[in-house]
C-alpha cells in the first residue's frame, strides 16, 4: 500500500529541515502556482521565474503557514499574490538565495517551441484579463481564485486571509457585476484544491 503524505506532514518535515519534503510540496503545487502566476502576469516566462520565488517565500515564511484542510495550495497562492506585487524584489531574493547556496546555475532558457505554442493562449488570456479589469480589485481577486484557479470559498478565504463571509459577499458582488457588464463566467475549473 502506498502512503501519500499530506501537505501538513510534508510541511512539518520541511520545517524541520527535510528538503526532500519541501521538494515534494513543490512537485505537488508548482503547476497550480505557475498557472496562477501566468494568469496574473500574462507571461509564461515571468510565471516561470516567479514560481520558484513563491516557494522560496513559502519556505522562509514557513512558521506562518496556514493550511486549509491539510492543503497548502491556498496559502501558496497568497504567497504568489504577494510575490507578483513585489516582483523584482522576489526575483532578487531568489537570486541571492541561489548565490548564498553556491548555486548560480549556468542555464539558459530554451523553450522556443513551447513559447510559440503558447502565443495564442497569451492572446486569449489578454482578452479575459481585459474583461477582468472592469471589476474592482477585490472582486478580481476572488474571481481569479474561485473561477480561474478553482479554489472553493473556504480555500479562497485562506488565500486572501479574509473571513469566509467576506469571500461569499465579494464573489456574489463580482458575479452580479459580471452579469451587468455582459461578461460570461465560463472558465476552466480543473485546478487541484487538495493534496
Amino acid at each position: 500500500m502506498i502512503m501519500t503524505a499530506t501537505d501538513r506532514v510534508l510541511w512539518d518535515r520541511a520545517s524541520g529541515g527535510d528538503s526532500e519534503a519541501f521538494g515534494q510540496l513543490y512537485d505537488r503545487h508548482a503547476r497550480a502556482v505557475y498557472n496562477f502566476l501566468y494568469r496574473r502576469t500574462a507571461s509564461w516566462s515571468d510565471a516561470e521565474d516567479l514560481t520558484s520565488a513563491v516557494f522560496l517565500h513559502a519556505w522562509r515564511r514557513r512558521a506562518d503557514v496556514v493550511l486549509d484542510r491539510d492543503s497548502a495550495l491556498p496559502w501558496l497562492l497568497r504567497a504568489a499574490d504577494y510575490t507578483v506585487r513585489n516582483e523584482w524584489r522576489a526575483k532578487l531574493r531568489y537570486r541571492r538565495a541561489l548565490a548564498a547556496a553556491h548555486l548560480l546555475a549556468d542555464h539558459q532558457r530554451d523553450h522556443a517551441d513551447e513559447v510559440i505554442g503558447r502565443l495564442d493562449t497569451d492572446h486569449h488570456l489578454e482578452q479575459a484579463r481585459a474583461a477582468m479589469k472592469r471589476l474592482p480589485r477585490q472582486e478580481r481577486e476572488i474571481v481569479e481564485l474561485c473561477v480561474w484557479s478553482g479554489l472553493d470559498q473556504q480555500a479562497a478565504a485562506v488565500a486572501l486571509d479574509v473571513p469566509l463571509g467576506t469571500v461569499k459577499s465579494r464573489l456574489s458582488r463580482a458575479r452580479k457585476h459580471l452579469r451587468e457588464l455582459g461578461i460570461s463566467e465560463l472558465s476552466k475549473t480543473s485546478v487541484e484544491t487538495q493534496p
Binding site: T121, A131, W148, L178, S187
Partner: peptide, 16 residues
C-alpha cells in the same frame, strides 16, 4: 459576449 475563460493549464517546462 466576452467571457472569462482562460487558456488551459500548462505544466512548467520539464527542464525548468
Amino acid at each position: 459576449m466576452t467571457d472569462l475563460t482562460t487558456p488551459p493549464d500548462h505544466d512548467l517546462p520539464r527542464p525548468v
